[in-house]
Design a protein around this nucleic acid. Structure first.
Lengths: 153, 153
DNA sequence: TATTGTTATACTCTATAACTATA
DNA sequence: TATAGTTATAGAGTATAACAATA
């Protein structure tokens, strides 16, 4: 008889699973994004720039959950690729409003399609129903809050 | 009427969700692990060292999906804390077998309990049944393929 | 005084390439 | 020749602290 009950296996750990899940997703989407000239991080920035009102750099950073100093470099890169523009806010001159150029909008559209397809491939081992459940559950454990789940009335 | 159909929101992206899920988990487990003197990465190493046969550094690295050069530093740290020992393999003198010290076993046991509790807190927004399904789905998307969902008899 | 963008800096995690000692 | 461990190095990705301009 082989030894048994060795305690937690590393493959059961969420820390391990989340790390490798991210690696698998980026192994799929990374190469697929190359023709667009942007990576997944830059796509995330473009994505938040068109959600609601065009944000300042600080607001964009907050939407992504990163520091404002990190956003500086990201915007620098995207501006160097002519995908976004910094426009001084007319009302508060400390702020830069960041907006997509027309080239930025085209790149966003193309990259969005590619990442949608990459996510479908990532989720391929699950049925359509399970994939939907999985996304919902991942959202709720990532951002638990009074929103969804069950509000303690 | 407000603008509609703006395309993918960043909060729906798996890349974004997986990143922040990992951040939430480590915000819970990181501080909780401090009293043990190790972090989650080191716990993962201790965990693979007691799975099956005591591995060489290379085997341990393969079990974790990291490079053997990265494992060197990890083992250095754990050895400096007297939690593991390098023992030259009697048969193949190129290899180091890495084994836990008794202090390493105690630390592993304590840290495992702490991380189990952290995972329960991480999963608290889900019912017990959903938490189980979530883990299974995360495993299958992370390591798809001809997988044994149950150990072969 | 407080906030925004910026810069300088540093830290974590990781990989690649080259070296050494064995095989 | 090939492999295991090691070392040196580099590259993402990120944050913190301090500064200038502006509020």
């Amino acid at each position: 008889m082989k030894e048994r009950a060795e305690g937690a296996q590393v493959r059961d750990r969420f820390g391990f699973l989340l790390k490798h899940a991210r690696e698998r997703l980026s192994a799929i989407s990374g190469p697929a994004l190359i023709p667009t000239g942007i990576n997944g991080r830059e796509l995330a920035v473009l994505t938040v720039l068109v959600q609601g009102e065009p944000p300042s750099q600080l607001e964009a950073a907050q939407r992504l959950g990163i520091d404002r100093s990190t956003m500086v470099t990201l915007i620098d890169e995207l501006e160097a690729k002519a995908l976004v523009e910094r426009r001084p806010d007319g009302v508060d001159r400390r702020r830069n409003i960041v907006a997509l150029t027309s080239r930025g909008r085209k790149t966003l559209a193309a990259a969005t399609e590619i990442v949608d397809a990459a996510e479908r491939e990532f989720l391929a081992p699950l049925s359509a129903h399970d994939a939907k459940r999985f996304r919902e559950m991942l959202q709720v454990v990532t951002f638990p809050g009074p929103h969804r789940a069950r509000p303690p009335r």
